[in-house]
Amino acid sequence: MLRVFSVAFWAFIVLTCPVFFAGAVLVWLVTLPFDRRRVVLHLYSSAWAAFYVYVNPLWRLRITGRDRLPWRGAAVLVANHASLIDILVLFALFRPFKWVSKQEIFRVPVIGWNMRLNGYVPVVRGSGASVRRMMDRCDRLLAAGSPLMMFPEGRRTSDGELQPFKDGAFDLAVRHDVPIFPIAVHGTRAALPRKGLILREHIRARIEVLPPLAPGDFPDAYALRDAARASIAKAL
């Protein structure tokens, strides 16, 4: 039964994404003259992604601590990563951040086109040149007042355990003196683990926005990184 439902749900996504993308192009064209940071387009994309979470009868999502996230001003948001579903549920925060995501996602038809339209940031894992370009782009976005959303583990966990964090997000926060917002994502791995596309039983996912960390309260980016990881680990 779950296999049949999974096929139907993915087919529904494939069929409706072009319709949503047509709307995204229209939003982009209308707001282009006055919305340089593409905030309206991102919020439209957030509604697009969250739609799939809320129409799925197997999924329930609860968000706590959302009021901690700013509507204005640069910040770095970091979350644990256990499932593809993480992306959908984090969009449901409805805050104007820019995603930092692996290059492969940008090559996916329609989804990748919308990511480029939004000005999200691609990175090729293992490529030093790509990482430098990503960091340069993130520097410009933070300087312009755009928050960033990053998965500091670098990839989805294979066993459900929180992996070590990479340094990039925390180097950016220290250099720009902007807060780090740790975010704990609960329950998504139960819906869709790293391998396979068959949806699992009913899940109750939860996003928990934790208290922000100020770079000035830590001696360096490494200490900030470790504090963010400890905060998420404790919440999980």
Rank of each mutant, 00 (worst) to 15 (best):
L141S: 01
Y52W: 14
I180M: 01
E153A: 08
P193C: 09
L141H: 05
T31P: 06
G168V: 03
A79C: 14
L93P: 02
E208Y: 02
D139Y: 11
F12I: 08
L199H: 04
R60N: 09
Y44C: 04
R189V: 09
F12A: 11
R133G: 11
L162F: 07
V110T: 11
I232R: 00
V108I: 13
V27S: 06
A205T: 13
T188V: 14
T188D: 03
F34S: 12
P33H: 13
P211S: 11
K98H: 13
M134H: 04
G196H: 06
V174G: 04
V76N: 04
P18D: 05
R107D: 13
F51S: 10
G119M: 01
V124C: 04
S158K: 15
D217P: 07
A11G: 14
N114L: 06
I105M: 06
L61I: 06
L26H: 06
A47L: 07
G216Q: 07
D177E: 14
F9R: 02
T16S: 15
L29N: 12
W28R: 14
P179D: 07
L199C: 10
W28I: 01
D171F: 14
F165L: 05
F5Q: 02
Y54E: 12
L58R: 15
L236A: 03
R189H: 11
A92K: 03
A230P: 07
F21K: 07
P109N: 10
M135L: 15
R206C: 15
L197D: 10
A129T: 12
R62S: 14
A221Y: 06
A235I: 08
F12D: 04
P18E: 02
F91S: 09
L224K: 01
R72Y: 09
A49G: 13
K98M: 03
K166P: 01
P212M: 02
S45K: 00
A11L: 13
P18R: 05
D177M: 02
V121E: 00
S130H: 07
F94P: 01
A205E: 00
H42C: 05
R37Q: 11
S158T: 12
A47K: 06
G168N: 05
A233E: 14
H186D: 08
N56M: 03
P182I: 05
G65Q: 02
L210R: 05
W10G: 05
R133T: 15
L29I: 12
A143L: 08
F9C: 04
F20M: 06
W59E: 01
A190I: 08
M134F: 04
R37A: 13
L90Y: 02
F106H: 11
A227Y: 06
V209Q: 00
A144Q: 14
A50L: 04
P211V: 03
A173E: 02
W28A: 15
D86A: 08
A190Q: 13
P147M: 04
H81K: 08
P182T: 12
F5D: 00
F20E: 00
D177S: 15
A22W: 12
G187C: 09
A79M: 05
A233W: 03
A227M: 08
V174Q: 07
N114H: 11
F51W: 13
R155S: 10
R194A: 09
M149D: 01
K234I: 06
G112Y: 04
A82T: 11
L199W: 06
M149S: 03
R175N: 14
A24C: 12
D217V: 14
G145A: 10
A49H: 10
I111H: 10
R125Y: 12
V124H: 13
P164G: 13
I13H: 12
V55Q: 10
R116T: 14
D159P: 08
